[in-house]
Structures are given as structure tokens and as C-alpha cells.
């Protein structure tokens, strides 16, 4: 739709702008949630760095796995040189690879810093669908991850390098962006109001895969990989829902941690032997 932004002599990919803006907003949201949860901001920033590195590696690794044949064809056609390698590294990411990579990043960071990962995961969680939402808008601008042909609801791309130009395609990217924004709002409202804040992670683990399975039905880019009739992302979504259910069952079995209430942290007003505790003492 609008893949390149020309600023003077520079040509900047709009997808990169959207992704970066989404990540910045997600980090700011996590810092805000972290401040309310009394998490050290420096530890949170270090956690972001770990997530970014691992998410980048994860997203790229899954892309290599899904499109291994296409990458090999590219090397055959253009040769194994720095330019081809750089083009491959710069283009093509798979969200679920980044999601799993980022999650592993939090676990590695928590292990190194000897802190519990659940607190970091809880404050960072609402930012994930927010950043993803901006990424999907970027996908729409670039013309990738396009939808099925639709005369009634479709939008025809004119400058897309991914989607076929001139054909009306359903804007599945915008649909997913809107649904992701709704998930982010639900998660943020829950984390602000509820005492069991870590439940917000389960909201994402169940809602996003369902949305992804739904929107996959409107996707038309077969290059994302189809196995046994379902796309790669659909299989991963099923895996995430299953993992979420197992984690929730373990949580319920272990017993939800007691929420922190004012009464639980207030000092006791009376000792056990305090004479004022006996209400009837002075009524006789």
C-alpha cells in the first residue's frame, strides 16, 4: 500500500517504522506497569534488551525454517554473497518465532539475575499485543501477510512488493491489528484492576491463538507454510492454547498465590493479650 517513505535522499521502510514504534510503546507501557509493581526500572530495561535479542533471533530462525527452500533458491540464483545474505537477514520475520524467542529471553534473564520471571512477564504482557498490532499495520503498508481475494471487502494494492497488485484483497492485517488492540486494552485494564495480576498472561495465551486461528482462514499468502491442511501459525496457536491450559491447571492445582491486600500488610492493631480486645470488659 505504502511500503516506502521517502525523506529527502533516504528511503525508509514503513514496516520498520511501525514495528519500532510498536516496540517503543510496548516498552513504555511495561515501564509504567513496572513502576506500579515496584520493579526496578534498570532490571526491566535489561529484560527488554534480552527479549529484543532473543525475539529477533527467534523470529528470524522460524522464518529460515518455514522458507528454507525459498532461501536456498535465492542463494542459487544470486550466489552466496554478503548482499544476498544481508537481504535475507533484513527481510522476513515470523511473529510466533519472535514470541517464543522473547519468552525464552525472559527465562534466561531471570535465571541470570536470579529473579522470578512471572513478575517481568506480567508487566510486559500487555505490551506484546500492542506492539504486534502496530506490526500488523506495517504488514498492511508493506503488502505482506495479505488476505484472500474479496470484491466486497477487499482493498487493491498498487505498490505492494508482496501482495498481487490490482486485485482486491481482504485487509486481514487491519482486522488482526484491531483485534490485537482490543486484547491489549483488556489485558491492561485487568492488570490495573485485578489483584491476581499474572492472570493477564493467560488472557493473552488463550485469546490471541483463537484470533490467529480465525484470521488464518482469511490469509492467502501460501508461502507461510501449510502442513496437513493447516498453516504453521495455526499449528503453533494450537500448541500455545494447549500449553496455556496445562499451565493454568498447574496454577490451579498449586493454588493461586494470595493477593496482596491492605489488611495483609497492615500491622496488627491489637496484641493477643490486649485488654481492649475484650469488648465486654468495661460493660460490666
Amino acid at each position: 500500500m505504502f511500503p516506502i517513505l521517502n525523506i529527502g535522499p533516504f528511503q525508509i521502510g514503513v514496516y520498520g517504522i511501525c514495528c519500532t514504534l510498536g516496540i517503543i510503546l510496548a516498552c513504555l507501557l511495561a515501564l509504567y506497569n513496572g513502576k506500579k509493581s515496584n520493579i526496578d526500572k534498570y532490571n526491566l530495561i535489561l529484560c527488554f534488551a534480552a527479549i529484543l535479542i532473543d525475539a529477533f533471533l527467534g523470529a528470524k530462525l522460524l522464518y529460515f525454517i518455514i522458507d528454507f527452500e525459498g532461501i536456498c533458491n535465492m542463494f542459487e540464483k544470486y550466489g552466496f554473497n554478503f548482499e544476498t545474505l544481508s537481504n535475507i537477514i533484513q527481510g522476513g520475520f515470523v511473529f510466533y518465532g519472535g514470541f517464543i524467542g522473547g519468552f525464552i529471553g525472559i527465562l534466561i534473564f531471570s535465571k541470570i539475575m536470579k529473579v522470578s520471571p512471572i513478575h517481568f512477564i506480567t508487566v510486559i504482557a500487555p505490551g506484546v499485543p500492542l506492539a504486534h498490532s502496530f506490526g500488523r499495520v506495517g504488514c498492511f503498508m508493506a503488502g505482506c501477510c495479505y488476505g484472500i481475494p474479496s470484491e466486497k471487502y477487499g482493498i487493491a494494492f498498487t505498490d505492494s512488493l508482496g501482495a498481487p497488485n490490482g486485485i482486491k484483497l481482504f485487509p486481514v492485517q487491519l482486522l488482526e491489528a484491531a483485534l490485537l488492540l482490543i486484547i491489549a486494552i483488556i489485558m491492561q485494564v485487568y492488570i490495573s484492576k485485578s489483584k491476581h495480576r499474572h492472570i493477564t498472561v493467560y488472557i493473552y495465551l488463550f485469546l490471541y491463538p483463537i484470533i490467529r486461528i480465525f484470521t488464518e482462514q482469511f490469509r492467502y499468502d501460501a508461502e507461510r507454510g501449510i502442513y496437513f491442511g493447516l498453516s504453521t501459525s495455526t499449528w503453533i496457536s494450537i500448541g500455545i492454547i494447549t500449553a496455556g491450559m496445562i499451565l493454568l491447571l498447574i496454577d490451579i492445582k498449586k493454588g493461586m498465590p494470595e493477593p496482596v491486600t491492605p489488611e495483609s500488610i497492615m500491622p496488627k492493631l491489637f496484641d493477643e493479650d490486649d485488654e481492649y480486645k475484650d469488648k465486654n470488659k468495661y460493660s460490666k
Binding site: 511500503p3 525508509i12 521502510g13 514496516y15 520498520g16 517504522i17 514495528c19 519500532t20 516496540i23 522464518y63 518455514i66 522458507d67 527452500e69 525459498g70 532461501i71 533458491n73 535465492m74 540464483k77 537481504n87 535475507i88 533484513q90 527481510g91 522476513g92 520475520f93 515470523v94 506495517g138 504488514c139 508493506a142 505482506c144 501477510c145 512488493l161 508482496g162 499468502d221 508461502e223 507461510r224
Partner: peptide, 16 residues
């Protein structure tokens, strides 16, 4: 990040 993360195409296969 803006310059490097340029998904001009989600897969190089689409290019070809």
C-alpha cells in the same frame, strides 16, 4: 531498528 527491520516481503519466495 527502523532501517534493518524492513519486511518489504515476509518471505523471499514471494519476491521470486
Amino acid at each position: 531498528g527502523i532501517v534493518a527491520v524492513s519486511c518489504t516481503l515476509c518471505t523471499t519466495c514471494s519476491c521470486l
